[in-house]
Design a binder for these strands. Sequence first.
DNA 1: GTTTGTACTAACCTAATGGTTCGTAACGTA
DNA 2: TACGTTACGAACCATTAGGTTAGTACAAAC
Lengths: 112, 112
Amino acid sequence: MDDQNLKQTLTPSTQSALKKTLDIICGKWRLFIIFQLGTETRRYGELRRMIPDISEKVLIQELKALIELGVLEKKSFNEVPPRVEYNLTARGLKVLPTLYQLTSVGEVFLEP
Amino acid sequence: MDDQNLKQTLTPSTQSALKKTLDIICGKWRLFIIFQLGTETRRYGELRRMIPDISEKVLIQELKALIELGVLEKKSFNEVPPRVEYNLTARGLKVLPTLYQLTSVGEVFLEP
DNA sequence: GTTTGTACTAACCTAATGGTTCGTAACGTA
DNA sequence: TACGTTACGAACCATTAGGTTAGTACAAAC
């Protein structure tokens, strides 16, 4: 019995899309950051207070990663003390409804 | 300016649902395994050939984890050579459509 | 009688993830 | 003059995720 009946159900383009998705949502904090931003603009310090369990370093690190992925954008104002604002990009807003649906997945598995 | 205007937009139950979701889908291979199973029943060796880049140890490890999470179930037949079959649970099937949508997220960010 | 196939386990290693602590600039406030 | 505030960077460490390699039982095929 050879493998010709084992069709690869995932096309290469589906596979790379999935990998990109995982880049964006995997990690302990990324979805939380995206959800806390939502459609709003928030300062770094606001986000830190909204997600109190994340460490400063990791928050900055994750924000930077999400910017590089094209999910977030950042505006720095030349003020003292510094002011920096973050918000979702157009693409980020576009996928937000799909990401919100992910809570329902967890809910299904938390049902008794 | 105190923090009373920083409403925690995520309720505790939403947060734990999100964490559960991340348990299920995070990791390099879990979504691929779930997608390759889909509505079918597959033997271990079939899965291994359908996801050729995964190592044997990691596939078994991830299958075991997904079983413990309630996403998959497994049937062992007392035969030689051994035969073991995997398929999604009812809950797994229930969230499958939502998980399929995740490819669209990556697609948005892969657009030029 | 040696090899092949199945579904694993065990031992070990590396790279990435997440966390802790400390330090920075320049201003407003006490 | 000392201190708090803001948004970070640097150095360092612990844990986890993922990977490699080897070995197991036992029947069937060659």
